[in-house]
Design a protein around this nucleic acid. Structure first.
Length: 187
DNA sequence: TGCACGATTCTCT
DNA sequence: GAGAATCGTGCAA
């Protein structure tokens, strides 16, 4: 929960040969295993997919969903070996807008549509399973301080699309920046 | 080896 | 608001 809030306002930077893209993190969700069913690592489920959640913290956990989209998480928690991760659900585009638009397959229109959603931000930032497990403290994919974050502007609500998680689906482990136009779902 | 489904997005109504 | 697109993953057999 601490890291989910701390990540808000920080910058995600990806340097690729297509160019550098930068986005400010504005929406996150916390997934803590093994006790809570919403987590992929519920019950200490340990497979090829979930493996990086058990590794070093501050690394990328990238997985594919619905056969066509990727989601990007940051591994977190105090203990290596205990699976915890923060899903990044939305970014505010800061730099590399042209590259983002090309990757998203749009030539004009809403900037808010570029990175408002976990699948969208991965496409815009050029994140795929190739980035699974990389250290987010060093290039080419890294998180930087420098963004701003006002503790009073953080909204806390329930997580999105985890109906399968029984009673745990009601936990208020989603955080986003109030009134920010780039949040995926402003409620 | 087979099968149901998802931490989503887009389009159409 | 409903339905499609689309396939890796996890679990049953």
């Amino acid at each position: 929960m601490t890291v989910a809030k701390e990540l808000l306002g920080k910058l995600l930077v990806h340097e690729t040969k297509e160019g550098t893209t930068i986005g400010r993190i504005v929406e996150t969700e916390a997934y803590e295993g093994p006790e809570y069913k919403a987590s992929h690592a519920y019950n200490n489920l340990r497979t090829e997919r979930t493996e990086v959640q058990y590794g070093p913290k501050g690394h990328a956990y990238v997985y594919q969903i619905y056969g066509m989209y990727f989601c990007f998480d940051v591994t977190s928690g105090r203990l290596v070996g205990k699976p915890e991760a923060i899903l990044v659900r939305a970014l505010e585009p800061i730099d590399g807008l042209g590259v983002m638009m090309r990757r998203r397959g749009v030539s004009n229109g809403q900037i808010a549509n570029l990175t408002a959603g976990p699948g969208k931000l991965c496409a815009a930032m050029g994140i795929s399973k190739k980035q699974n497990g990389v250290d987010l403290c060093v290039p080419p994919l890294r998180i930087e301080t420098g963004g701003t974050r006002d503790e009073r502007q953080i909204v806390q609500t329930g997580r999105v699309n985890i109906d399968y998680a029984d009673k745990w689906k009601y936990l208020p482990w989603r955080f986003f920046i109030k009134n920010n136009a780039f949040v995926s779902r402003p409620n």
